Amino acid sequence: MASVGWHWGWVTVALTALLARLASSLNLEDPNVCSHWESYSVTVQESYAHPFDQIYYTSCTNVLNWFKCTRHRVSYRTAYRRGEKTMYRRKEQCCPGFYESGEMCVPHCDEKCVHGRCVAPNTCQCEPGWGGADCSSACDSSHWGPHCSNRCQCKNSALCNPITGACICTPGYRGWRCEEDCEAGTYGNGCQQKCLCQNGASCHHITGECTCSPGYTGAFCEDLCPPGKHGRQCEERCPCQNGGVCHHVTGECSCPAGWTGMVCGQPCPEGRFGRNCSQECQCHNGATCDSATGQCFCSPGYIGER
């Protein structure tokens, strides 16, 4: 019965997560859909061992009770209770600069693209023969100035102002010719968005996506590697034994009291105890020393703390 209760509790959790996923109307394959994690609680049924007092009789020397004596013992039976479990689900919404249209996230331009279409936040793609920030000037995307006689020098797919020749950089680029990536810590349209990456992570100059430093994980690299993992992208397994704790970046083991070695696989040598086996046992008269606490175990014939 315990396994049945556990099973139905997790069925409830799975259905809740599935319904939350289906509730999103956005196409999750759309690269302009951003997401974040949110927590919620679900009720689950769990089993536990409930103790109760059981009385039984046994033979004894009590003549008054016909040689029967009462005994007590603690027995256990399976009981059930409700519990709260914290779950996490991904919530989707359009990225900054985009709005929801049907199942897609489409870009928003503050100014209407007169002879073109909005292909990125505040960025118009002009029809052939037109130019300008809002595609209202009759030049193609490669020329500018009087009679469109000057060839644009913009790089990285930047648009060219048909009147001044100034480059309108695509998200992720800057400079007079849009020849440079956004400087560190910024990304996106006009390099105006601040990177949210933490713990020394690098930020993609176009999307703002974080590339975590070794030892960190999460959308913004805000979390340490989970227990048992370390290194780049938290893909390396920790080798520590006997309760040793692995450093999330280097994988170096920090041993508990009583153990030593690269992977905490060796007990302290005789006469030493404590963390890193750094303390010397103070026991006398052939007593042995606990490698973790230093407590003395006296030889026959001796007492005392040491």
Rank of each mutant, 00 (worst) to 15 (best):
Y80L: 03
T170A: 01
Q54K: 06
K91S: 04
D140E: 13
A257C: 01
N276H: 11
C191M: 02
S25E: 07
N65V: 00
G102R: 13
K85L: 11
H108K: 15
D53P: 01
P300H: 09
T70D: 01
G83Y: 06
Q45W: 08
L64F: 09
H72D: 01
H284M: 13
Y302I: 11
S299F: 02
C246I: 05
G116C: 02
S149I: 09
C197Q: 03
P269W: 03
Y302D: 12
R77C: 02
R73E: 11
Q295Y: 03
N276E: 05
N32I: 13
Q93E: 14
L19N: 14
H7L: 04
F52L: 04
V44W: 00
H247C: 01
R272E: 01
F98H: 15
T43F: 07
C124R: 12
N156A: 07
Y57V: 04
R174P: 01
Y187P: 04
D134E: 12
C210F: 05
P51N: 08
L19P: 00
H143Y: 14
A17C: 12
T70K: 12
I168K: 05
Q54P: 03
E92Q: 12
H7P: 00
P214A: 10
C238N: 05
G102K: 15
L15Y: 13
V114A: 10
C191R: 09
S202Q: 09
W8Q: 05
E280C: 01
V13Y: 02
R177L: 02
V245N: 03
V11H: 07
Q54W: 06
C240G: 05
R232G: 08
R174Y: 00
G228E: 00
N122E: 10
W176V: 15
C210L: 10
N150C: 03
G102C: 05
I168S: 13
Q266N: 06
H7S: 06
E46S: 13
A219P: 09
V106R: 14
P226R: 06
W8V: 03
I168V: 04
K85G: 05
T58R: 15
G185W: 05
E46N: 08
G228C: 08
P107M: 10
P146W: 11
A201N: 09
S39L: 11
G286V: 02
S291C: 01
R232N: 10
C253T: 00
T86D: 02
Q295G: 07
S75I: 03
S47C: 04
Q279S: 10
G131I: 11
H115R: 10
S137N: 10
G301F: 05
Y56H: 08
N62F: 03
A14D: 14
C124W: 09
F297Y: 11
C113D: 09
R71L: 02
G132C: 08
N27M: 04
T70W: 09
R151C: 02
G243D: 02
C109R: 11
S24H: 14
N156W: 00
